[in-house]
Amino acid sequence: MMQKQQGFTLIELVVVIIILGILAVTAAPKFINLQGDAYRSTLDGLKASLQGANTLVYSKSAIAGKEKAADDTVQVGATAADTVAIAFGYLQNDAASLEEALELDTTNDWTIAEGADLTAPTILYQTTSPYDDGTGANPAADCHLEYTPSQALGALPTYEVKGDDC
């Protein structure tokens, strides 16, 4: 008479553990991309901040009667030094205005690559993100925010988060 086997052999357990280990090493990083999610969430937060800042800038422009001007300035702070450039009441796409309105740290944390003119998008990205290769060449990685100012009276600015490669 043969005895019934009542459990797994040591070899079977070791093989299963090795297979699970291989799966964990290869599959888990594809599903757990915390750094990429953090960059993407930061860009979404920056987009919301820019939209909020533009709402306030438009309000200041309307109060000053400058919301119909294609190229003007409006004071957003307590002093005359707190001035931003506007196009049809909304922030223009120059680095100085965006830095002033959003209070961004462009020395350490953020980079603003201005659009060539008011019709070209300005690109904002974190200096440590995959978009920044350290050379300023702006690689093709999509991990940035594109802001294009208002192009006409009554038209809204556009905000586009490109975060596929974060």
Rank of each mutant, 00 (worst) to 15 (best):
G89Q: 06
F88I: 06
A101L: 05
E99Y: 00
G115L: 05
T119Q: 06
L104C: 09
E100W: 03
L91G: 13
T119C: 02
T119G: 04
D109N: 10
D94S: 08
A113C: 06
T119N: 05
T119R: 04
N108H: 14
E103P: 00
Y90D: 04
L104E: 07
E103S: 14
N93G: 12
A101T: 10
E100A: 13
E99A: 15
F88W: 14
L98T: 13
A85H: 15
L118V: 07
N108P: 00
L102G: 03
D117W: 06
A120C: 05
A116W: 01
E100T: 15
L98V: 13
A85I: 10
E99Q: 15
T106G: 10
G115S: 05
A85L: 13
N108V: 02
Y90H: 02
Q92V: 05
D94A: 14
A116R: 08
Q92W: 14
I112W: 04
Q92A: 15
A113M: 10
L104A: 06
G89E: 12
L104Q: 07
Y90W: 12
S97V: 10
F88G: 12
T107W: 04
A120I: 01
N108M: 09
W110R: 00
L98K: 06
E99C: 01
A120K: 14
E100Y: 11
G115H: 06
T111A: 12
A85W: 12
G89Y: 07
A95D: 12
T111K: 07
L98H: 06
T111Q: 09
A95H: 04
I112T: 05
E114T: 07
A87P: 00
I86M: 10
N108W: 04
T119F: 02
E99H: 06
A96M: 01
E103D: 15
D105K: 15
D117I: 03
A85N: 15
A113P: 01
D94W: 01
N108E: 07
A96T: 11
E100G: 03
D117Q: 09
A87Q: 13
N93K: 03
D109S: 12
I112Q: 09
T119E: 03
F88A: 11
T106H: 08
Q92E: 15
L104R: 03
L104Y: 03
A113G: 00
D105S: 10
T107V: 13
T107I: 09
A95Y: 00
E114D: 11
A87W: 04
I112Y: 07
A101N: 11
A95C: 01
G115T: 00
E99N: 12
I112A: 04
W110Q: 02
W110D: 04
D109H: 02
A116Q: 14
L102S: 08
A85P: 00
D105Q: 14
T119S: 07
T119P: 00
Q92F: 10
L118N: 12
T107M: 06
S97F: 11
T106L: 06
A120E: 10
D117R: 05
L91I: 00
A101W: 11
W110G: 01
E99V: 14
L102H: 11
E114G: 02
T107N: 13
A85C: 00
E99T: 14
T106A: 06
N93H: 07
S97Q: 10
Y90S: 08
A85G: 09
A116T: 15
L102P: 04
E99P: 03
W110Y: 12
A113K: 13
D109F: 03
L104I: 13
G115F: 01
F88N: 11
L91W: 08
L102V: 02
Q92D: 15
